[in-house]
Nucleic acid binder design. Structure first.
Lengths: 225, 225
DNA sequence: TCATTCTGAATTGTCGACAATATTATGCAA
DNA sequence: TTGCATAATATTGTCGACAATTCAGAATGA
């Protein structure tokens, strides 16, 4: 199943989608701000047709919200929204683990283990640069999700929820203190999968994401965001 | 959050979406068949612009698959796909139950209980007519999902997966022997929610959907569908 | 006969203009 | 001044036509 959101951009709509997606995730287009079709069409130098196609896909990954005859706005970030999103992730990635324990080949599992060791070393070298940690984390979760071999689950997590998760992380600056702990948790998860213990892998993944969620909840304890 | 897929049709794209959606779900447009934009545009008497908007949303609820420059095809139904879909539903509706036990008001819960009794009586009157059972079942599950108050979960189940579930049910004729048992299971689930026992409600819902899934798996044991 | 290349037809992607709707600005009355 | 109705403006929704790409079939050669 080649994703309709992620594919090497063959069409103009594909290209502008990637650009706007990046701009929204990184906050260059402010949350809550209105999307003007004529304005963006001029900015990216194309007509409104491919632009609207891109907007439809942006809505699909929850980065914008459209109202008929009134246009589109970039989503606003809220603590409540973040919690809801992480609740879903907990359950879904837990399921992914259970299925991955069932469906991943020994070879695929070995590759992920190798990947983790690799990330560990590069992270030690680049102490403090959270980008590598971020990328490594994403990479790990992706492998597991793909390992579930459930096309709906894959589409859902990788295409429809991933960008929003990234948007929250980038704009709320979530990458802090859990860096080193995450490696151990990742290790434990892939080991459970290697042992074909889906139930344990499920549990560990839920805890892993749940820890992030609680971490965030605490961070916003006395702020009204 | 007003759903972008379900809304009283204010625009031409909305209207044609509903029509094509129905046609696909009920099998009037055959699974696997190609979608011709000029043909459909002529058939529904509108231009390709709103039609393409509708197609984008059909892709979103997994009823069609599009390939760049090659067009769209109606999805094919497969046992593997059905299993994947039900695996997701099990987990997601289980989560919905857990959240519903936390977030539904006493009033909302009472309404669902009332609804169930109501369905029971009409079903007794119309013995054998599975349509009412189908509608009642959908209604029950909807209430619980909405009761979770998690906007992503609601959008996901009600907008993106529901139509595909219906398509499978309609075209594979799944409504059979579990009719009367479903009522008891529904009762048990809403009672658990009324007792604010989210964990139990989660478990019961998983079993409820899992039973359907196993029912289907058995049905296709020796067929290569 | 079969495989390959080329040609033509059909389909999808994109464009610019117009119609319908929402938003803003204006004027009037209380 | 404030509130509401109305008019002007801007934005979204839809249309028909053109460009780019893919698909089907004919022609060519082995």
């Amino acid at each position: 199943m080649q994703s309709p959101i992620w594919r090497d951009p063959v069409t103009a709509a594909d290209r502008v989608l990637l650009e706007i997606q990046k701009a929204i995730v990184e906050g260059q287009i402010a949350p809550g701000s209105k999307i003007s079709e004529p304005e963006l069409a001029k900015k990216y130098d194309l007509s409104r047709a491919p632009l609207r196609e891109a907007l439809a896909r942006l809505e699909r990954c929850h980065l914008i919200e459209r109202t008929p005859n009134a246009g589109a706005r970039v989503v606003k970030l809220s603590v409540a929204g973040l919690i809801s999103l992480y609740q879903l992730r907990e359950t879904l990635e837990g399921l992914a683990c259970r299925l991955a324990a069932e469906h991943m080949s020994d070879d695929e599992i070995a590759q992920v283990q190798q990947l983790l060791d690799q990330h560990l070393s590069t992270q030690r070298v680049r102490e403090g640069e959270s980008y590598y940690q971020e990328a490594g984390d994403v990479d790990f979760h992706y492998r597991i999700i793909l390992g579930s071999k459930n096309p709906y689950l894959i589409n859902l997590l990788c295409d429809e929820l991933y960008f929003l998760v990234r948007m929250y992380r980038v704009q709320l600056g979530m990458n802090g203190p859990r860096v080193s702990r995450a490696f151990d948790e990742h290790k434990a998860i892939i080991n459970a999968i290697a042992n074909r213990d889906g139930e344990l892998a499920d549990l560990l993944m839920r805890r892993h994401i749940g820890a992030s969620r609680r971490n965030i909840e605490q961070h916003f304890k006395q702020q009204g965001n």
